[in-house]
Simulated scan of single mutants.
Amino acid sequence: MSLAPPASWPGVDGQPLSCREKLKVLAENHEELVQVMRDAFEDAVLMGVDEAALRRILTEMVAALPSPKRPQP
């Protein structure tokens, strides 16, 4: 499994983003997130958390993230 950032980041119009500064920020965020998730995953599994359950929990966390484009109550 590759943890490299995607080859392109699709915009809302379906076209890949091309702004160098945006791509730089996205790559940095991706790298930081991979490291934090890897550390948290390894800690949990080594402490005895079921790996499949942890993957579900992490997936649910991402799915529950609110959109910054929608006003929050």
Rank of each mutant, 00 (worst) to 15 (best):
E21N: 12
V25Q: 00
P6Y: 02
M1W: 15
Q15L: 14
P68K: 10
K69G: 08
L33N: 05
L54S: 05
M37D: 00
V12C: 09
S18R: 12
R20C: 06
L65T: 03
C19V: 14
Q15K: 12
E60I: 04
D13Q: 00
R55N: 07
E31W: 00
L3Q: 10
L17Q: 09
L58T: 08
R56C: 04
A44N: 03
T59S: 07
L17K: 12
R20H: 10
W9A: 03
R55Y: 01
D50V: 11
L3K: 08
A40P: 03
L3I: 11
E28K: 04
P10Q: 10
V12E: 15
V36L: 14
I57K: 15
Q72G: 03
P10W: 10
C19K: 10
V34D: 02
K24F: 06
L17M: 12
T59Q: 07
A52T: 13
Q72N: 07
L65P: 03
A63N: 09
A40T: 03
K22G: 11
S8A: 15
W9L: 06
L65C: 06
S8P: 05
A44L: 02
P66W: 02
G14N: 05
L46E: 13
L33I: 06
K24V: 05
P68T: 15
R38Y: 12
K24L: 13
A27I: 01
R20V: 10
S67R: 00
P6L: 07
F41K: 06
A64D: 09
G14D: 04
A40E: 15
L17P: 10
L58F: 11
V12T: 15
V25D: 01
R56I: 10
E28P: 02
L54F: 08
V34F: 06
V34N: 07
V62R: 04
W9K: 02
G11Y: 08
